[in-house]
């Protein structure tokens, strides 16, 4: 059933169905509903603490949902069908579900005990059952694509932040995800390294049919690559629009939500 979903499934790639996430007393996401179509590039913007990163972490199964259901490729992500009901998924289901999803982190999270190539090949070998040779061939191609062919045998600690993030991108792509989650991937980089990484991501977005969900404060990048931008504030989507509409704001709207977006964009864009 899960093997053929790409042929038979035409619905949204990601679907949040009344998702609630609480940390103790604190409600981070409240009754969240949204869809992302296959191949779409969606950027989440909003102030810190508005729940953007939590959405990515829920999708990567790094956090558990409090209520509601997330569907990826039409199948419940962290639940199982059992007697017409949804029950919490076991590790086996989670490992199957995670095959569709990759994530690039703000702090790269490369494995310091493995060389660069090993960082990229270990996961395909261990969890997709690729042969070492096959994985290394693909890994070398990916390293070439991110412009780091000469760093195959380096340790992550010998690379600059920008280079580490490129390796992390290659590592995520090596798993051939349907969905790629980008969690503030340039926030930890020196300003001069940001452009290169964003350029690479733009190229990947344009040349593959991967579905992207991206949290970023790089508004120009968001505007360039996104098919849709969602503005978050305190756990709610307060605007969901094409970037041109959201960023240019042609006719000032009396809507208070829109006012909040404008305020946020002003604050972020004036900074530079």
């Amino acid at each position: 059933m899960s093997v053929n979903y790409e042929q038979s499934f035409n619905g949204p790639m990601i679907q949040f169905d009344n998702v609630v996430k609480r940390f103790g007393q604190l409600t981070v996401l409240e009754d969240l509903n949204f869809d992302v179509a296959p191949g779409e590039f969606v950027t989440l913007i909003g102030p810190s603490g508005s729940g953007k990163t939590t959405i990515l972490r829920l999708l990567m199964t790094l956090e558990k949902l409090t209520e509601g259901t997330i569907y990826v490729g039409g199948e419940p992500l962290s639940h199982l069908h059992k007697d017409d009901k949804l029950v919490e998924a076991n590790e086996k289901h989670l490992r199957e579900a995670r095959k569709k999803i990759g994530m690039v982190f703000q702090q790269f999270n490369l494995f310091p005990n493995m060389k660069v190539l090993r960082n990229i090949t270990e996961a395909p070998v261990r969890s997709l059952g690729r042969s070492r040779d096959e994985a290394e061939k693909r890994g070398s191609e990916l390293l070439e694509m991110v412009g780091l062919s000469d760093k195959v045998d380096a340790h992550p600690s010998q690379l600059s932040g920008g280079q580490q993030q490129r390796v992390a991108i290659a590592r995520a792509l090596a798993m051939e995800p349907k969905v790629l989650l980008l969690d503030e991937v340039t926030s930890a980089l020196d300003p001069e390294l940001v452009t290169g990484v964003l350029h690479l991501l733009k190229e990947i977005a344009e040349t593959t049919d991967i579905t992207f969900l991206c949290v970023t404060h790089e508004m120009q990048f968001a505007r360039d690559v996104s098919d849709r931008v969602m503005m978050f504030d305190s756990g709610h989507v307060i605007e969901d629009a094409h970037p041109d509409k959201l960023f240019t704001d042609p006719d000032p709207d009396p809507d208070p939500d829109h006012e909040r977006t404008r305020e946020f964009l002003h604050a972020v864009l004036d900074r530079g």
């Binding site: 790094l62 490992r95 982190f105 490369l110 270990e122 969890s127």
Partner: peptide, 25 residues
């Protein structure tokens, strides 16, 4: 914790996470 999360994102099993990523460090 970031190393655990990186390993989950790479879809390692709990045992692989421990023996390939966490313990060597």
């Amino acid at each position: 914790k970031a190393q655990h999360e990186g390993a989950i994102a790479c879809n390692f099993s709990p045992a692989q996470r421990m023996f390939r990523v966490i313990l060597p460090q």
